[in-house]
Design a protein around this nucleic acid. Structure first.
Lengths: 230, 230
DNA sequence: CAGGAAATCTTACCAGCGTCAAGATTATAT
DNA sequence: ATATAATCTTGACGCTGGTAAGATTTCCTG
């Protein structure tokens, strides 16, 4: 969680600058988005001069990388909170809802972990915190979420092929793409068009249709596309 | 197309700066991405000082808006090039392929028109070029693509409901989300993981599975999710 | 065809950004 | 206790987008 408890403010040395920077930056991302994030602003808010962060992060990119790691952990936790569901199909649907909910509730964090804006080299673990727990952050979380998805899809398909002859990896890709696309389109305001009622409500309804479409396609055994009925 | 033919370089007045800026900026986007775009660099490349663009675009955002309009036109054209296909289901599939192909071939342009980075106010038309042709750029192109999609889906569904009871707007949303998500995930390098062979080839294969899944789900009439077969 | 107004471009400056170098201050280890 | 390392500050650099004032050209009006 990168908690920055012992702030020890007022003294020359901060005591726990690195974590404080990450925590503050994360809060700022949630408030004003990734674009508004600035080393100088983070430093100011933490109560330190603009050059201090350079001693903990060689680069702005390295800071962003650490932030993304933190964000991925939270995201992974949000998805994992649904893994207890027994029925794989229901679990998959719930994963989809949790996925989009996280993206919509934490737009900054989601954009950070999914978007570009950082050269995608996950850093090697730096702080082996404490007792034997190898905190394999970030990279592991990324792999973990992917695995959660793939195994759930595999369970749901139970050896059979899905609609259209789709394989496990194909269906997993579809589910991920659809959720990611839906979340991004909503975040980027591409859905704001001829909305008769509440746009958020309309979005939720369409999302449910998407989920049930995919659900049904998985539940069905493989079947070829029937010739168009004309 | 915003062609900047009469460059008239060397003289004090450029002659056609606005279009030249747009064209050059578009080329730079294709080369180095949206992030690397800078007013000063565009100006330098056009052969003009850094403050000159301010007389044609109040803001960098306004420049980006004009660029996005241009990009949307090209994108819309790429999709329209497939609208001649008679069978709506085949047309929809081909639209999906054209969609992703455009995104992968023009990452900068696609990111520009889909992403944030611009306050989404489409500008009012400014230059009523020539003879009676109301060039209703940008906004119209955006609406146009959406309409292309919705009508194609509607034709393909032919009044019936799709798999899982999905409506026309629901299926259109799914198709759009899936293609957008797939394109974005690929562009942002989220697919680079345990690829046994060529990653681009793997991506194409999965994309085909996604398309055939959706195709099949549309071709099928509405059917409820059967209870999990355990 | 003049001559003033408007458009266009240049020059010069501003604050903010990320980054680096050098010095001040504190912690740690020998 | 003293040297070494870690940490933070100060000050500077070049880059960015934006603005103001002046130079140059075009255009429109009388």
């Amino acid at each position: 969680m990168a908690t920055s408890q012992p702030k020890k403010r007022g003294s020359y040395h901060h005591g726990n600058l690195r974590d404080a920077l990450i925590d503050t930056a994360f809060a700022m991302i949630e408030e004003d988005g990734v674009e508004a994030l600035t080393i100088r602003r983070i430093a100011e808010r933490v109560g330190v001069t603009h050059a201090a962060p350079a001693h903990h992060f060689a680069d702005k990119n390295e800071l962003m990388l650490a932030l993304a790691t933190e964000g991925f952990n939270r995201f992974s936790a949000a998805l994992a909170s649904v893994m207890h569901i027994a029925d794989p199909l229901a679990r998959l649907s719930e994963m989809g809802r949790a996925y989009v909910r996280f993206a919509l509730d934490h737009p900054g964090a989601y954009r950070l972990i999914m978007g570009p804006a950082l050269s995608r080299i996950q850093m090697p673990v730096q702080q082996p915190t404490g007792v034997g727990v190898s905190e394999d952050r970030g990279q592991a979380a990324s792999e973990g979420t992917r695995e959660m998805l793939e195994t759930t899809v595999a369970e749901a398909m139970a050896g059979r092929r899905a609609l259209g002859g789709a394989s496990v990896s194909g269906v997993a890709f579809l589910a991920w793409s659809a959720m990611h696309g839906a979340a991004m389109l909503s975040l980027d305001g591409m859905m704001d068009c001829e909305p008769s009622g509440d746009p958020a409500e309309e979005f939720q309804q369409k999302l449910e249709e998407v989920i049930s479409f995919i659900e049904a396609g998985i539940a069905l055994s493989a079947s070829e596309v029937p010739p168009p009925s004309t």
